[in-house]
Structure formats: C-alpha cells, structure tokens
Design a binder for these strands. Structure first.
Lengths: 207, 207
DNA sequence: GTTTTGACTATTTTGTTCTAAAAGTCAAAA
DNA sequence: TTTTGACTTTTAGAACAAAATAGTCAAAAC
C-alpha cells in the first residue's frame, strides 16, 4: 500500500497514462498507435504501462470509458439546471453534437479500430447506451409527468429516439473509411439534428 | 435484327439471366457467386452472359436496378389508390419494409459485396434515393396542400425522413457481417418503424 | 446477321512462407 | 511497490506461387 502522503500517486499515474493514450489514440487510432509511443510520450517504459493495464485493448477501453463518463456527467449537470423537458432534450442533443466533435474525438477514431477489439468493447458500448437511455428516459418521464408529452410506449420510444439519432449520425459518417466530416457537412448534420429534435418533440406533445 | 416472330427473345433472354443472377446473388452475394454458376443454372455458357452484359458488375447492377424499379412502381401504384397523405406515408413505410424483406432480398446481400463495386453502384444508389425522395416529397406536398401538414423546410424534411428511416434499418442490420435479422428482431424493427412513422407524422401535423 | 460456344488469356483471390514490428512477459533493479 | 529493458510470442505485412475466376475472341451454330 502507498503511504498517506502518496495516496493519490497511483491514480495520478493512471490519469497521466490515459491522457497520453487518449492523445495518441485520438490522433492516429488504435491500430496506428504503439504502446512504445505512449510510453515514450510519458518518458517511461513500455513495461510500465503493463503494470497498470493488462493489455492494449484494456487501455483503449479505459480511454473511451473516461470520455463517455465525462460526456454523461456533463449532460447530467446541464439537465439538472433546466426545468422543461423540451429544453432538456434539446440540450441533450446539442451536447451530444459537441461531444462527438471534441470530447471523444470520434472524428479521429477509425472505424476499423473500433471493430478490431469488438469483443472487449461490446460491453462498453452497451453500457454507454444504457446510460444514455437512462437520461433520455428521465427527460421523457418528466415530460409525461408535467403533462406536455403523451407517450404510450416509453421504453420503445426512448430506444427509438436514441437509435434514430445514432442512425442519423452514422449515415453521415459512413461511406468514408474514417469518421470525419467537412465543416459544411457537419453544419448540415447539426441542422438535421435540430429539425429532427423539433419534429420528434412535436410528435410527442399532447394535442 | 431478330425476325418479327422473335421480337421479344432478346429481352426474354435478358430477363432470364437477371432472374438466375438474382437468385444466386440473393443467396450468396456478389463475391460468392461466379459467372459460371449463373451460366450453368441457365444451361448456357459463361461467354453467352458476356454477350448481354459487359461484366459481372453491370449484371449485378442490372439485378439491383430491376428490384428497385419494381419497388418504386409498386409504391406508386399503392399510393395512387390513397387520398390521405398520412395513409400514403404509412403505406410507403409498410411497402418499404416488405421490399427489404422479399423483393430485393437485401437480407442476403452482404455488406462487403456492395462496397466491392462501389464506384459502379454509387450512381444507382443515388438515383434510387432521388426517386424515393420524389415519392416522399409528393406525399408531404399533398399533406401541406390539404392543410394537415405544416412543414417549413420541405427539402430538408424529405431528406431527414428518408435518412432517419434508412439509419433505423441500418443500425439494426450492421454489427453483423451480413444483412440478416432473426424473426423477432425483424418484428421489433417493424414496430420501431411504425412508432417512428406515427411520431413523425404527428410532428408534422398542424396543431 | 445474330447468338453461342469453349478454349484461351488476364486478373483476382487465396494460401504460404518469411520477416519485421509490435505486443506482451518477467526476473532483476530501483 | 514500481520500473526497467532484455526477452519471447504474436501479429501484420510483403513477396511469391498456385488456384480460381473474370473476361476475350475466333470459329461454329443457329
């Protein structure tokens, strides 16, 4: 065990590793990043990384999970400030847009990379989806409670909303080998997101 | 030139080839189907196929285009029978579901296959999308004219609707190497489609 | 003249081996 | 407890041969 004065060293070290890994993975993807490079960036040795992470895949996963939880807590915070379900949903969509642009740097994660370690990541993606659904469900439930939304199948509607949004983003980014959008393509995606949200919200409202 | 009594032989032959090719492509995909197999199915020789189609890619494309135009004319017919924009849109979605299940046998076309001859097919997909948009635009326009839909950005809304639907289908079929859905997955997709259509229509309606 | 044929060539895919690079291990050192 | 770097193992890629398949064409059949 570490002494009292060094109680945070371990976590700090891990945080540093995650930071360095995130930079490399974010820029070059999983396949084009070596453990050696990450170690060199940190001025440490490769073997050291294996003291903290069992393998490259788990390091990658840790980076992704860190970004996911950053996104989730950011959304939670923003939503807590709001009182109106409609506003909440719009805020959620907006933050999600930003998240995919800046936080996770998904624009740089290559498609292949994500498939490469599919078995390991599957649980992570599923878990993230669950957590996103919790948020959306909360928003929809509030809307129902407040008498502005009329939703007969809550679970299916939550799932549908998320799938529609994911699908919308996916369609725009596929067909290219990598996740990357030209500025005007991105702007168009935002517009689509907003129009979608507007129509969907209106579609949920009481008449 | 063929004589009067044989005026349709050429087209008949082509139709036969398309039929045989469609069966093979539908079952095994582009990559796992050989020209020899198609020829053997027809009791003819490989060289004969090349008399009618310049190469395998063009044969594949012809099969896809035939299925696409079957779908389009079927939708057009159904919609002509209806008077209400809401019903039209629901009919369109329903036929689209059937189409992807039975007509095009997309469930069997493998993802890789479609990318394999991407440059050749790109125009075909784009053309199909245009034609789908024409139909959706017609329906939306009718809804506006009849005073049941309130749409400020018609073009974007048409495009959004199609993209949302495509995305919804895509999400369900990806993650597997091939387009295939278990019956209960398919049933769930249909339910999602219907809920989506309902919410979207409500979202378009005048208040 | 139109269509079909099958032997032909060209191209692509597949399997193999080899090599270099990177992943991952571990006993010794800090 | 953590780090190190030499070590072994695994994977990715290049190069090549072999097999399968696409695509051609002159001659034959209709």
């Amino acid at each position: 065990m570490a002494t009292a004065t060094h109680c945070c060293e371990n976590e700090e070290k891990i945080a540093h590793i995650l930071e360095a890994a995130q930079k490399r993975f974010g820029l070059y993807g999983l396949g084009k990043t070596t453990m050696q490079e990450i170690a060199s960036d940190l001025g440490t040795s490769k073997g050291s990384l294996y003291y903290y992470f069992p393998d490259k895949g788990h390091l990658f996963r840790a980076v992704v999970e860190k970004e996911q939880s950053l996104f989730l807590s950011f959304v939670e915070d923003k939503i807590r400030e709001l009182t109106d379900a409609e506003m909440m949903l719009k805020a959620y969509v907006k933050i999600r847009q930003t998240y995919f642009r800046t936080f996770l740097n998904l624009s740089r994660f290559r498609l292949e990379d994500i498939r490469e370690i599919k078995p390991l990541m599957e649980e992570t993606w599923a878990d993230f989806e669950k957590k996103e659904k919790v948020i959306i469900r909360k928003i929809f439930s509030k809307g129902i409670r407040d008498g502005i939304f009329s939703i007969s199948e809550l679970e299916r509607t939550v799932s549908l909303f998320l799938h529609l949004m994911k699908g919308l983003h996916h369609r725009k980014t596929k067909n290219k080998g990598i996740f990357y959008l030209e500025p005007e393509e991105y702007a168009s995606l935002i517009k689509d997101d907003n129009l979608f949200t507007e129509i969907f919200i209106k579609g949920l409202k009481y008449k």
